[in-house]
Design a protein around this nucleic acid. Sequence first.
DNA 1: TCCTGACTAGTCAATCTTGACTAATCAGAA
DNA 2: TTCTGATTAGTCAAGATTGACTAGTCAGGA
Lengths: 175, 175
Amino acid sequence: MHRELLLLGLLRNEDMHGYRLAEFIAHDMAFCTDLKKPTAYHLLQKMAADGLIDESAEQEGNRPARTVYRITAAGEARFQTLLRENLRHYQSIHFAGDIGLAFIDALPQDEAHDLLRQRHAAITAEIEHLSSVAGQTHTDGGLALVFDHYLYHLRSESAWLAAVLNGEPRTSPPG
Amino acid sequence: MHRELLLLGLLRNEDMHGYRLAEFIAHDMAFCTDLKKPTAYHLLQKMAADGLIDESAEQEGNRPARTVYRITAAGEARFQTLLRENLRHYQSIHFAGDIGLAFIDALPQDEAHDLLRQRHAAITAEIEHLSSVAGQTHTDGGLALVFDHYLYHLRSESAWLAAVLNGEPRTSPPG
DNA sequence: TCCTGACTAGTCAATCTTGACTAATCAGAA
DNA sequence: TTCTGATTAGTCAAGATTGACTAGTCAGGA
């Protein structure tokens, strides 16, 4: 459902064709969604069938024709509903990396420790990378908030993993 | 891929039939995965076809026959590989709730604030609930670690959202 | 001019995922 | 005993998702 919200939200800002939508999402929102190009096309077609968006053909020079999508009044109403639902609720997350943790006792302690150190290094690297990209794009309005959230989350993950690696007692709160 | 790891890890501990696996996952691992019953069956059949697990029929009383799965040597090898891969890497997460945040400017500030307060209350409620269930099950070995991670994450989310609601400056680290 | 590699705009088959359903068994109440 | 609702053990069709592919365009170098 949040994928529809994403597409409607972007179309609300500006009419776009599928390729551009997918590209924007992949380049500028990679840190908060993993919506792929074919999925975007699929959802766009479905939403068009539902009357939430309008399709129109557009030709530029003699490049291949593009299908441009524009949000309708029904789509705007949907957006409003979905947005409120999204903000109101907390949607719990599952960490793929936790499955490994659940079976960590299957490995010798030394090796497990070493692997987790590599994981910690990967988190640190992502924090560095994100921090360095910080001021470049998506520094506007809502996306800035999301960016901050992601960075905060990464720091929290890093801190938790560091505590585990130091053998600190469990279930300690952050901050 | 982590779903295969999960099923192999559980079968490694004990032979089981599909229904029991799915039930255990839904009851005792809900906080770290969302693998559904039909998906579990699908993966079990695939892994059986790949020779990672063996199928055998089992009849108890005159209850319907059950297909019991047992991990093979190839399956154990796969488990070892997948476990190391899982622990070594950090797999980044996407928050469905972030999509709403990205478009929060579309709502009047007061309403947005109010909705986020409801979200915060939902997180608090989940923390309460989890804390109360803490000592009951999954307090063993790896699952204890995962449980701690989830609780830590919830606290981190709560803290971040509280900071946002208080209008505190962004991109502050936890702890 | 011709060729190569990159970009544009999408499509498609294969795979994954799940809500809803089936069909049998059992426990306990009426 | 008979009925109801819960539990057991799955199946299935429908829908979601994605890696790999197509087919045209364009820029720049040889």
